[in-house]
Structures are given as C-alpha cells and as structure tokens.
C-alpha cells in the first residue's frame, strides 16, 4: 500500500512498495498518459513532476514518494489541453506519433517552473527526452511560445 498525492488528490494505492511509480500510476491509478519507454530512466517518456521537479517515474519506487509530495501527471496539467504549455503544443501542432509527448510536456513544465525564460542552451540541457519521430525543433519552439504566453499572463 502506498499513499500518494496525485494531481492534487490523495490516493491509497494497493501496490508492492518496490513497484515503480510509473506502473503504480498506469496500472493502479489508471493514469495511462504517462508512458513506459525504457524502464531505466533513459528516454523520459515516463516523466512526471514531483513537487515541481521533472522525475522519471519508471525507475523510482512508489514507496520513495511521500504522501505529502505532489505528483503531477499530464492528466493533471489540464484535462482539456488548456494549460499554456498544451496550448503552445496545440498551436504549433507538435506531436507526430505522440507517444513521447506527455513526457516532453512535463519536462517542459519543470523547466518553465525553474527557468521562466529559457535560452536555447537551457532547453538543450534540460530536455533530454527521446523522440524518434523527430519533433525536437517544434518542441523547442513550443517551449519558447509557452514561456512567452506564461510570462505575458504573469505581467498582465
């Protein structure tokens, strides 16, 4: 049993403690937006935010996350694609197959939390997720667009 706070909701999840957070989210919490890609924290498809920090959930035991820590998945960012990052992705029509995109979006959310106006070098350094379709340049452009709109809304 693990007590987790997922997308603002406290959930008691029936799971062996060593189960990776990814599989607890996918198979117990029913949140399949977070994807399985490699199982060794290499590809980033499983990226979620824990207390605002991008975390690869496939290699993190569910028991390592405390009940007070805030887990945010793509479903929690917004359910209807209204979050500025999702809006930027929509505006630039970023995804191809789309499988890596939830991880990309969550990695972008963490980057924009810590660095509201990221440079190209910031993006290259922080977004290390793999996309095999090759959406990288549009992911980069969408992060910049989201940074602009989020910054404008902060000022406005």
């Amino acid at each position: 049993m693990a007590r987790l706070t997922i997308n603002g909701e406290i959930r008691d999840i029936e799971v062996a403690p060593e189960t990776p957070l990814l599989w607890a989210l996918r198979e117990q919490a029913g949140l399949t937006g977070t994807k399985f890609g490699c199982g060794i924290a290499q590809c980033g498809a499983c990226t979620v935010l824990i207390d605002g920090v991008a975390t690869r959930s496939c290699a993190l035991p569910a028991s390592a996350v405390g009940p007070d820590q805030q887990i945010l998945t793509v479903e929690g960012l917004s359910n209807d694609a209204t979050h500025p990052i999702q809006q930027a992705w929509l505006a630039l029509d970023v995804p191809q197959c789309g499988y890596c995109q939830a991880g990309m979006i969550m990695a972008a959310a963490a980057l924009l939390n810590s660095t509201p106006t990221p440079t190209d070098d910031d993006i290259s350094a922080e977004i290390t997720n793999i996309c095999r379709c090759g959406t990288y340049n549009r992911v980069r452009a969408a992060i910049k667009l989201a940074a602009e709109t989020m910054s404008a809304s902060r000022k406005g």
């Binding site: 694609a81 992705w89 029509d93 995804p95």
Partner: peptide, 26 residues
C-alpha cells in the same frame, strides 16, 4: 493541423500499451 493532436497532449490518446479491457491479464 492534424486531427489527432489534442488527445496526445492530455494523455487521452490510447496506444496499444494503454488498452484496458474488463478482466484483462498482463
């Protein structure tokens, strides 16, 4: 724009690995 973008931004797009059926084993 593509017709299939929105669901790929919210986690709603169902890929093979995401499929859930009643009584399903893994």
């Amino acid at each position: 724009p593509r017709l299939d973008t929105r669901d790929k931004l919210t986690g709603k797009q169902v890929y093979g690995v995401d499929l859930q059926l009643p009584g399903m084993l893994n």
